[in-house]
Design a protein around this nucleic acid. Structure first.
Lengths: 197, 197
DNA sequence: GCACGTTGATGCACAGTATGCAATATTTGC
DNA sequence: GCAAATATTGCATACTGTGCATCAACGTGC
């Protein structure tokens, strides 16, 4: 799952980042709608056709590619018998530990989201992939019948995580390690609301 | 906010439904990707240009237009001092009461979602509009500072509501009145998960 | 280091989405 | 009925996204 570290793969990853950076800076300068995929490709030094080899669409280029759970994390989760939410958060911790987060890029995304809130659905939608993975994990414990409930939980978690990312990106004093802690706190706030029936 | 019941508005609403029905049946018959907006327009008896006067894009035509809270519901909510979640659910009850739900159309949507799960994001995304309204309501109680938390709560509510709609559409024995009850139950299940840290 | 298989980059053609604009038809309010 | 307001439509156009064929670059086994 990790990069194979051959020249080809390193270049591939570099190009993917170049494209994302180009997309973000151009969108910040000219507005997301005004920027064309052709411009982004030009700025990244590739052809438009190659742009679509890297990202399925313009949205995806802005957000970049979300990380996935490592196989051993999944294996650990299936075996563990701790409390569900606690274990899910631990799995997230592993994920974030191995993914090397780029605060600079996150800040660009944040600035763009501030200027163009209509892009928020894209942002949250991008976390859907991660949310699906969380739901899959939860289903291994709850059983397939509970998938809708697992998805509801997973969606709440990934939403809270997305919020936390925005906080982290804008607060240099905040460590990567505390991301999941803040997410957990947000989820407890949510729990509080759900009790007020 | 409700239809002004002038000839023009009745026609407008009828055309909107015709388009949605055309979009759904064609998508079910031929597959969502294969259907073009031109085909949908033809099936609905209008021009392609008019199609885009009614819906901003192809996705929106499939989902239709989500209802909004009535002004008096909003007014009531601001004055009420009941528990937050309870009042939000009451507001939803009012909303569903006044919106005339079309089970047939909902069933079509459901069948389509079963065949093409890749459309689920569109479906949940369409509830974002409703989620935003719920968040706005909640913010009138919690204050603007708590908007991220309000949005987290609102998103959980609208997700649970969307799930419930799917159940309701496929279960003729289920009454409209019990929709919010089932939604509330789902939210309590979620609360249970959030306690398992 | 060389030849061969694999993978990536690119140009081109093309179908489809979506918007602006101007002309035309329909509805409404008076 | 008539004028103002609003809806529908055709047309031109910009842009997104895909399939396909070709060419260049890399990796591998020898």
């Amino acid at each position: 799952m990790a990069a194979k570290s051959t020249l080809r793969d390193r270049r591939r990853q570099q190009t993917a980042r170049d494209i994302q950076r180009a997309a973000l800076t151009l969108a910040l300068r000219l507005g997301y709608d005004s920027v064309t995929t052709e411009q982004i490709a030009a700025e990244a030094g590739i052809s438009q056709r190659t742009f679509f080899n890297y990202y399925l669409n313009k949205d995806a280029a802005i957000i970049g590619t979300a990380p996935s759970f490592a196989d051993d994390t999944v294996a650990w989760f299936r075996e563990s018998s701790g409390p569900l939410l606690g274990d899910l958060l631990k799995a997230l911790r592993h994920l974030l530990c191995h993914a090397d987060l780029d605060r600079g890029m996150s800040q660009l995304i944040n600035r763009l989201l501030d200027e163009a809130p209509e892009l928020l659905p894209i942002f949250y939608g991008s976390l859907k992939r991660l949310g699906d993975q969380i739901a899959d994990l939860a289903v291994t414990r709850l059983g397939e019948d509970a998938r809708p409930d697992a998805e509801l939980l997973a969606q709440a978690i990934s939403h809270a995580l997305a919020d936390t990312f925005r906080i982290w990106a804008n607060d240099d004093a905040m460590s990567e390690g505390s991301i999941v802690d803040v997410t957990a706190a947000k989820l407890q706030t949510l729990r509080g609301f759900l009790e007020q029936v």
